[in-house]
């Protein structure tokens, strides 16, 4: 797995911090599994951060919007921990052929 693109930005009007991440998977199936594994748990802190996940073909895209850099960093770090665990799980436990 490699991350193909990252982008950070500050919204000109709201002053909110934005962060974008594109993660390519071998196929749409893996990207969708990752999306569905990562989506159920909401951000622990109420307010201050927004995270949106989507899949287009075999790419998982994540879009953050946050009030503070600290909260954004915590959320992105924990997302990357979760993502790498899922990718490792796929590497070790995916069946050899599609079900």
């Amino acid at each position: 797995m490699g991350i193909t693109s990252m982008a950070t930005a500050i919204h000109p009007e709201t002053g909110k911090l934005g962060f974008l991440l594109d993660v390519p998977f071998p196929s749409a199936r893996e990207a969708t599994i990752a999306l569905r594994s990562l989506s159920p748990d909401r951000e622990p802190r109420r307010g201050g951060i927004n995270k949106h996940l989507s899949v287009s073909e075999s790419t998982l895209s994540v879009r953050w919007s946050a009030d503070e850099a600290r909260i954004l960093r915590v959320s992105v770090n924990s997302f990357l921990d979760h993502l790498s665990l899922i990718v490792e799980t796929m590497d070790l436990f995916a069946p050899p052929v599609d079900l």
Binding site: A34, S37, P40, I86, T89, M90, F93, P95
Partner: peptide, 9 residues
């Protein structure tokens, strides 16, 4: 996360 992933795989 691992439970969800293997359930799908």
């Amino acid at each position: 996360l691992v439970a969800r992933t293997v359930a799908q795989l």
